[in-house]
């Protein structure tokens, strides 16, 4: 197992390098002069030239890429001019807020989605199955940012049960309960689509598994229906559900951008949108690279989890 993890980590290195190349390439697509973009159209030529030299923008592109890469390896992701602080500090702080939100959403969509899929399959064509199928259809069709605002309207504005936005009360201790109260609506809105997708796939995977010979063996042994479904069938279905969860994690992370904007959540997605609108390209570049690299790492974790649940995968 240790060797497998090591192997996966090593094989991730070229992927991460590729990510940096792609990000660097995209950022070099900026029309015109980056220094002008930062300083604005009315900057004096001397200032532009000085900034170009300061940022190392007068050097050839390949050299600039390696300088950027080297700096990042040393922990220096550059400096955000709009926030006037190191990019890495800001990104790490914001990304942890995103992780909390995305993590809870992923938890909701896994538990709820798998449970709904299993119940749906166990009661195929029954009333529960039809109700779940309909709910899934609505869930995957409603844009998360629209759902988020509807949730605010009803639960925060109309019923006044939950806060409208933010991660904590502005004045008050940063308590766990406070975080939880702020979390419920955005996490629900973010999880909706993924829950639908997971439920739908779990249902299919369960129906596939329930026809297998080893399920018949379990029944022949006298295992009850609960044991057949939740122990025998679900365990086998998890083999095809886990990769879906991995893919959904990517979608949840992506969807977090909208939800963070809707709910004023201080996450990395909202940071990137703000940075784009303020043309703080260093922050965009560093943020995108950092999050993408973390995502690669996350996918390795999914693969390792997969090999843990399925002994047939040679680890």
């Amino acid at each position: 197992m240790g060797r497998y993890i090591l192997y996966r980590l090593i094989s991730a290195v070229p992927v991460v390098l590729g990510i940096t190349v792609i990000v660097f390439f995209i950022m070099s697509l900026i029309p015109g002069d980056p220094a002008t973009a930062i300083l604005g159209a009315y900057a004096s030529p001397e200032n532009v030239a000085k900034l170009n030299a300061d940022l190392g923008l007068d050097k050839p592109m390949v050299q600039r890429y390696f300088i950027w890469l080297g700096n990042m390896l040393g922990g220096d992701f550059g400096r955000s001019f709009s926030l006037n602080r190191p990019v890495l500090d800001e990104v790490v702080e914001r990304f942890s807020a995103t992780l909390v939100l995305a993590g809870v959403s992923l938890l909701i969509c896994s538990v709820l989605g798998i449970a709904a899929g299993v119940v749906s399959a166990a009661r195929q064509y029954g009333l529960a199955d039809k109700a779940i199928t309909l709910a899934v259809l609505v869930g995957i069709s409603i844009p998360s940012f629209f759902l988020g605002m509807l949730l605010i309207l009803y639960f925060a504005v109309h019923l006044r049960w939950l806060p409208v936005s933010g991660m904590y009360e502005i004045y008050g201790g940063r308590t766990f309960g406070d975080l939880l109260r702020h979390m419920i609506l955005p996490a629900t809105a973010l999880a909706a689509v993924a829950t639908g997708v997971v439920a739908r796939l779990s249902r299919g995977a369960m129906l596939e598994v329930l026809r297998q010979d080893y399920i018949r063996t379990a029944r022949a042994k006298g295992v009850g229906e609960g044991g057949v479904i939740w122990r025998h069938a679900l365990r086998a279905a998890m083999v095809s559900i886990i990769p879906v969860l991995g893919i959904q994690a990517g979608f949840v992370l992506s969807g977090a951008v909208y939800i963070e904007v809707v709910f004023q959540w201080p996450g990395v997605g909202r940071m990137l949108v703000d940075a784009i609108l303020k043309r703080d390209l260093m922050l965009v570049q560093g943020g995108v690279t950092f999050v993408a690299a973390c995502y690669v790492l996350f996918n390795i974790i999914v693969d390792v989890a997969q090999s843990l649940i399925d002994p047939r995968i040679k680890a």
């Binding site: 990510i19 900026i30 990137l272 940075a275 995108v288």
Partner: peptide, 20 residues
């Protein structure tokens, strides 16, 4: 594969950031 290693919105955001 490299492009697919990104969560899709990150890439879209990077492109919009560069192009405006």
């Amino acid at each position: 594969d490299m492009i697919m290693a990104f969560p899709y919105i990150l890439l879209a955001l990077a492109i919009v950031a560069a192009l405006g």
